[in-house]
Every structure is written in C-alpha cells, then in structure tokens.
Simulated assay, not measured.
Amino acid sequence: MAIDPQGPILIEGPVEVVLDDGTLARSDRFVVALCTCRRSHAYPWCDTSHRRRERAVAPSQDRSLT
C-alpha cells in the first residue's frame, strides 16, 4: 500500500470496498487507486479529480502571515 498526501491510496488488487450505503465495489486490477478526497466521479476509485484542486494560499506564504 502507498499513500500520497495529495492523492489516492494505492493498493495491490483485486480489491473489494464496502461503501457507506452497504453496496460492494470491486476492482480486479493489479493496482487500485482509492480516492481520499471524495472529488472523484468514479468514487471509490480515483479519477485524478484531486489534481484540479487549487490552494487559496501557498504553504510558504501561510507561515509569513502569523
């Protein structure tokens, strides 16, 4: 398993995920990207929607404001 702080969790497949409503989502791929930002249109699978996210203030600028 690999976790990217700005992206998905990568897990070796196949994978079964039980969703909040009790339905089962399954992927037979050898590596599966699970969405952590909940922006994916293919949730629970990552569709790279997290890449469109923009920050209001860059982290280096945020520290100088205090």
Rank of each mutant, 00 (worst) to 15 (best):
residue 2 A to W: 00
residue 2 A to Q: 07
residue 3 I to P: 00
residue 4 D to P: 00
residue 4 D to Q: 08
residue 4 D to L: 08
residue 7 G to E: 02
residue 7 G to L: 02
residue 8 P to F: 01
residue 8 P to H: 03
residue 9 I to L: 10
residue 9 I to A: 05
residue 10 L to H: 09
residue 10 L to P: 03
residue 11 I to G: 00
residue 11 I to S: 01
residue 12 E to L: 06
residue 12 E to C: 03
residue 12 E to R: 11
residue 12 E to W: 04
residue 14 P to Q: 00
residue 14 P to Y: 03
residue 15 V to E: 02
residue 15 V to Y: 01
residue 16 E to L: 03
residue 18 V to H: 02
residue 19 L to V: 07
residue 19 L to D: 09
residue 21 D to P: 02
residue 22 G to V: 04
residue 22 G to I: 03
residue 22 G to R: 02
residue 22 G to Q: 02
residue 22 G to T: 04
residue 23 T to S: 11
residue 23 T to L: 06
residue 25 A to Q: 05
residue 26 R to T: 14
residue 26 R to D: 08
residue 27 S to Y: 01
residue 27 S to G: 01
residue 28 D to L: 09
residue 29 R to F: 07
residue 30 F to E: 14
residue 30 F to G: 09
residue 30 F to A: 12
residue 31 V to P: 02
residue 32 V to F: 01
residue 32 V to M: 00
residue 33 A to L: 03
residue 34 L to M: 08
residue 34 L to D: 01
residue 35 C to K: 04
residue 35 C to F: 03
residue 36 T to E: 10
residue 37 C to G: 13
residue 37 C to P: 07
residue 37 C to A: 14
residue 38 R to V: 09
residue 38 R to N: 11
residue 41 H to V: 10
residue 43 Y to M: 12
residue 44 P to M: 05
residue 45 W to N: 10
residue 45 W to L: 14
residue 46 C to M: 05
residue 47 D to E: 07
residue 48 T to D: 11
residue 49 S to M: 10
residue 49 S to V: 07
residue 50 H to D: 15
residue 50 H to R: 15
residue 50 H to P: 12
residue 51 R to V: 13
residue 51 R to D: 14
residue 56 A to N: 06
residue 57 V to W: 09
residue 57 V to F: 09
residue 58 A to Y: 10
residue 59 P to Y: 01
residue 59 P to H: 05
residue 59 P to S: 07
residue 60 S to E: 15
residue 61 Q to V: 13
residue 61 Q to W: 11
residue 62 D to E: 15
residue 62 D to N: 13
residue 62 D to A: 15
residue 63 R to G: 12
residue 63 R to E: 15
residue 63 R to T: 15
residue 63 R to Y: 13
residue 65 L to H: 13
residue 65 L to G: 11
residue 65 L to S: 14
residue 66 T to A: 14
residue 66 T to V: 15
